[in-house]
Simulated scan of single mutants.
Amino acid sequence: MDQSLQALLQGCRRGEEPAQQAFYERYYSYALSVCLAYASNPEDAREILNDSFLKAFRHLGSLKQEDALLPWLRRILVNTALDYYRKNRQRAADIPLQGVDYELVEPYLNEDAIFAQLSAEHILTVLHQLPVPYRLVFSLYVLEGYSHGEIAQRLAIAESTSRSHLSEANRRLRQALSAQTIPTHERTKR
């Protein structure tokens, strides 16, 4: 680990505000990208992010291996997002699970060709079109590597519901991403 990061972490552990500000600025983009995968909108993502940084500053003393900073921070971000979801479950439950139905532009295109055309930002935008329960299960399973049992426990749902939500999220994502890409042969005509 580089000396500047070590000094920064020591300053944060001592509660030095300039060190905490520098830490926040250094990891803001990374943390926001994680939070956006779980939040319903940018405002919720920023709230989750700020709560996460407060928790990180409070518990920085528990970080044993400074080389594991990013996974440790990511765990805090994800757990804070899940806490936020549980706290606001009623609001999320008011969002209907019926999403927008997408027509496939070119159903014969293979998925590799489709996804090669897309940026991470575009995929994240489409992911945010999913209803919250689907997006949470998808993010926990695909991005974090949780099992359906772990997801069920964290979200207080049945394992079968977790599997069902993942399946539906995958289906909707494929449809949405397929519908929003321009087939390669059409781009060359323009």
Rank of each mutant, 00 (worst) to 15 (best):
M1L: 08
M1V: 00
Q6T: 11
L8I: 10
L9H: 09
G11D: 03
R13F: 02
R14E: 14
R14Q: 15
R14P: 02
P18W: 06
Q20S: 03
Q20D: 00
F23M: 08
Y24G: 04
S29D: 12
A39P: 03
N41Y: 02
P42E: 12
P42N: 13
P42Q: 07
A45G: 01
E47L: 09
I48F: 04
I48A: 05
L49V: 00
N50W: 06
F53A: 07
K55G: 06
A56L: 13
H59V: 01
H59S: 13
H59T: 10
S62V: 04
K64W: 11
A68M: 08
L70Y: 04
W72F: 06
L73T: 01
L73N: 02
R74F: 03
R74C: 03
R75D: 10
L77P: 02
V78K: 04
T80Q: 11
A81I: 11
D83T: 12
Y84F: 14
Y85H: 05
Y85G: 05
Y85P: 05
Y85C: 02
Y85K: 10
R86L: 13
A92L: 03
D94W: 10
D94V: 08
D94E: 12
L97I: 03
L97M: 14
L97R: 10
Q98N: 07
V100K: 12
V100L: 15
Y102H: 08
E106W: 10
E106Y: 11
L109I: 06
L109R: 15
D112A: 15
D112G: 02
I114S: 09
F115V: 09
A116M: 11
A116F: 06
S119T: 13
S119G: 11
A120Q: 13
I123P: 08
T125R: 12
Q129P: 04
V137M: 05
F138Y: 15
F138W: 15
L140P: 01
L140E: 00
G145C: 10
G145A: 09
Y146A: 05
S147N: 08
H148K: 15
G149A: 13
G149R: 14
E150A: 13
I151L: 02
R154I: 06
R154D: 04
L155W: 05
L155K: 06
I157C: 04
E159R: 13
T161K: 12
S162A: 15
R163P: 08
L166V: 04
E168A: 06
A169N: 05
R172W: 12
L177W: 05
S178P: 01
A179Y: 07
T181F: 09
T184I: 10
T184W: 10
R187K: 12
K189W: 14
R190H: 08
R190P: 02
